[in-house]
């Protein structure tokens, strides 16, 4: 990295990290909250990959789910409602050495931060973004979110939500430069883990929508898909995620899907009856904004001076007898 003294970049300390090393404060989520599972899967990933905590930044917005960074013993930035993505982009732009993760709620990402969501897909910066989609605003106590099913009663829709929900997968898959889209449920931990891992290894912006239970406010919202395992369509592919046999025993609706096929991905995403689980789309060839905007010169005093002198010459007036 430019601007950093090289000797500090070498991590001489060959410590082996345990799960404990990634744990910070004790989570204050409600018992049974799906956020706990997402936290565990993420900590597992860091341990498995032996990622140095100091080289990792978790950025979040505001919401129950956005407390996430406080529970990770890494660097963390619990920011503003809706603004996690542009902050994470700022972190990443000059710090390719840092692993950047973003945790957002459905309100955070699909409502107040919707503009940033669309543009983050376009920038395609190298980071993992997880949306904890509990179909509700949790922290502010049960208001309808963009993904709340029509008819669900909330404090702002006491007679039932009046609009059709937004389909975040279809929206995501429609944006140019999209490079990684996955959908998963937190209650199948092995799949959740595998998706996050694949996202981590993808070069580009990895978007994961995670259906997350909120026993406190939407205890039954996922009942239909939980009670009928066949309503989950598990996507398997040698070049994507391979569904383990143990899981196939319970979830029998498994289909082979080549994640490079965006048309098929869009088709699966549009099917609201059967929810696709796994990697819908992946394209490693999309250029990342962090690469495109990589500095060609270090910003050291001598380089700056040289650039400035050129500018001063351009706008300069010399003494008459010079």
């Amino acid at each position: 990295m430019f601007g950093v003294s090289i000797d500090n970049l070498l991590n001489l300390d060959q410590k082996y990290y345990q799960m404990d090393d990634y744990q910070s404060d004790i989570p204050r989520w409600c018992p049974g909250c799906g956020d706990n599972g997402i936290l565990t899967a993420t900590q597992r990933l860091l341990r498995e990959e032996q990622i140095a905590p100091e080289k990792t930044v978790f950025v979040s917005g505001i919401g129950c789910s956005s407390r996430f960074p406080h529970y990770m013993n890494t660097y963390g930035f619990h920011s503003l409602h809706g603004r996690a993505l542009p902050i994470a982009e700022g972190v990443k732009i000059r710090r390719p050495d840092l692993h950047v993760f973003v945790n957002m709620g459905d309100g955070d990402c699909f409502s107040i931060g919707a503009a940033h969501w669309i543009h983050a897909l376009r920038y395609n910066m190298n980071m993992v973004a997880m949306v904890h989609d509990n179909n509700i605003y949790g922290l502010t106590k049960k208001q309808a979110s963009p993904t709340t099913p029509k008819g669900l009663k909330s404090n702002t829709t006491p007679r039932g939500a009046v609009l059709e929900p937004l389909n975040p997968l279809v929206t995501t898959l429609a944006v140019s430069n999209v490079s990684f889209v996955a959908n998963v449920v937190e209650w199948i931990p092995d799949l959740l883990f595998d998706v996050i891992k694949k996202a981590f290894h993808h070069k580009g912006f990895s978007f994961i929508r995670i259906l997350q239970r909120c026993p406190h406010f939407t205890p039954h919202v996922f009942d239909p898909i939980m009670n009928e395992p066949d309503r989950l369509r598990l996507l398997t592919h040698d070049d994507g995620m391979v569904i383990p046999d143990a899981i196939k025993k319970i979830y029998k609706n498994v289909e082979t899907h080549d994640p490079s096929n965006i048309h098929k991905a869009r088709e699966y995403a549009s099917d609201t009856e059967t929810i696709p689980i796994g990697i819908l789309f992946r394209d490693e060839s999309v250029p990342t904004y962090d690469d495109i905007r990589k500095p060609t010169k270090p910003n050291t005093p001598s380089v700056i001076n040289e650039a400035l002198q050129r500018e001063f010459d351009k706008f300069g007036i010399k003494p008459k007898n010079d």
């Binding site: 920011s79 542009p86 902050i87 700022g90 972190v91 503009a115 500095p295 010169k297």
Partner: peptide, 26 residues
């Protein structure tokens, strides 16, 4: 860029300010 810098045109002012804050933080 001649001085090792970059201008990022963000999607709106909120993003521009957030981006600058993220970059400053790191």
């Amino acid at each position: 860029e001649n001085a090792g810098g970059m201008v990022h045109q963000a999607e709106d002012e909120l993003a521009a300010c957030a981006f600058a804050i993220g970059a400053s933080y790191a």
